[in-house]
Amino acid sequence: MTAAGTGGTFDVIYALDLLGTAAFAASGALVGIRKRMDLLGVVVLGLVTATGGGVVRDLLMNDTPPFCFKNETYLYLALAVTIIVFLIPRKFERQRKTMLLLDALGLGTFLVIGTSKALAFKLGFMGSVIMGVMTATAGGMIRDMLGNEIPLILQREIYASACIAGGIVLYLLHRAGVAAAVTLPVAALVVIAIRIAAILRGWQLPKGPVI
């Protein structure tokens, strides 16, 4: 959720960032459609899902205006995807597994971007991991709350926990002096692999005891 620089790894991360933005926008739009919202409501959910995490991160880090207002490509892309989903929602509903895989890809990419930005701002271990997790999940939390649902990360899904694992890996590799060309894809792959494995194998976190 930030414009990447030129060359190599950063070009790939930027491309994946845009793909993740599109996937998150689609997921937000589908929630709005399932809730029988009008076009404006669907657009709002699509935009906040795609960009909300990065906006919250940037506001907390006092990096203003937030990333999507510095590079409006994110807003235009999220808006275009949202409108397409609004027009042909059934085609996207039928591709649920593909959407989940794209969501996992976006999750890993957003985690890497958020954590990397926190490191660039000289945040410590907790701050860097939290900013990464927030970048990846806050948009979805806002989507779920606007859609009157319990946020996904507060349920038993292996979602935010996958981001935490990836953020820890990225921070440790960074502190060990490993080059960004290695740390970024490795951390992203950790998140993606955990999330996909959780989807395929039905992994869930334990619930609290009944009281």
Rank of each mutant, 00 (worst) to 15 (best):
L18C: 03
T64R: 11
N71R: 12
K97W: 08
I13G: 03
G106M: 04
V42D: 01
D58V: 01
F67T: 00
L60I: 12
G32P: 01
T64V: 09
G53F: 08
L45R: 06
L123E: 10
F125V: 11
P89S: 00
D58R: 03
G53Y: 07
P66A: 00
G32C: 04
T64L: 09
A15L: 06
G20S: 05
A104W: 02
N71F: 12
A22L: 04
A29C: 06
I33L: 06
F69D: 10
V85D: 05
K117P: 09
L59G: 09
L101W: 09
S116P: 07
T98N: 14
G127Q: 14
T21K: 03
A26W: 09
T98G: 15
A22M: 05
L16I: 04
G106L: 03
G28S: 06
G106V: 05
M126H: 15
R90H: 06
F121G: 13
G32D: 02
A118F: 03
D63C: 15
S27Y: 08
D58K: 03
A118Q: 01
L107A: 10
L18R: 00
A50L: 06
D58Y: 01
L105R: 08
A29T: 02
A29N: 01
K70Y: 13
A118S: 04
A104I: 05
D17N: 09
F125M: 10
I88E: 15
M126E: 14
A80G: 08
F92R: 03
G28N: 04
F92E: 04
T109W: 05
T82F: 13
F86R: 15
P89H: 02
L16G: 03
A26G: 11
L30W: 12
F24S: 05
R90A: 08
L40K: 15
D17G: 07
A50F: 07
M126Q: 13
K117G: 07
V43T: 11
K122H: 14
L79I: 06
K122E: 15
L59F: 11
L105C: 11
L30N: 07
L39V: 15
N71Y: 13
T51Q: 09
L102E: 10
G28L: 00
V56M: 13
V44N: 06
V12K: 03
L119T: 04
G54P: 01
E93W: 08
A80D: 11
N62K: 15
D17R: 05
A50R: 02
D103S: 10
N71E: 15
A25W: 02
G20T: 02
I113S: 01
A80F: 14
G52W: 07
L101K: 11
S116N: 10
A25R: 00
I13R: 02
L19A: 06
I84M: 13
V31M: 01
R94K: 12
K97M: 11
I84A: 13
D58Q: 05
M37H: 10
A25Q: 02
P66Y: 01
G106I: 02
A120W: 14
V44F: 10
S27G: 15
P65G: 02
R34E: 09
A22I: 04
A26D: 09
G46L: 00
R96Y: 12
M126L: 15
L119D: 01
G20Y: 01
T98Q: 14
G52I: 06
L75D: 00
V43F: 08
D38F: 11
G114R: 08
P66T: 01
G41C: 04
L40P: 15
G106H: 04
V55P: 02
G32T: 03
M126V: 13
R96T: 09
D63W: 12
Y14G: 15
T21W: 03
